[in-house]
Amino acid sequence: MIPLNIPETEDTPKVTLDPANGMFEISKRSYPEDATGFYAPVIGWLGQYMSAPNPETNFTFRLEYFNTASAKQVFKILTVLDDLSKQSKVTIRWHYNKQDQDMLASGQRYSNMIGAEMVMVEN
């Protein structure tokens, strides 16, 4: 499957979805003008990946900031990963800065909302 690489900008995150190299990561900042529009290709790509996934998918979130519109989109991605976890092994790593308790709380909230394994990683 063709990897999806979106370079970061000031207000949109870096997205790396590369099954051949086992890299699945969303990082940096996410407060785009149109969050739904930005994440549509990401969610679309994951939908396609569902049809022929790797035996194991390690998905990393390493966000510094995300706005509420992005929060909704992140949840949609997690929902897809949750579905994927019913057919193959999925581990989601949610990174947070030690001092950023809000980022940890967001991760824990998502973790409680899905069945897939979600690990909180302190940086």
């Binding site: 969050a35 739904t36 509420t68 519109a69 929060a71 909704k72 909230r109």
Partner: peptide, 22 residues
Amino acid sequence: YTKVLLEEERPGDKGAGLGLID
């Protein structure tokens, strides 16, 4: 907040409806 996250998106929604809660 969790309840709103779970709500279906409606076409034409400009935000997640989470702003004030957040």
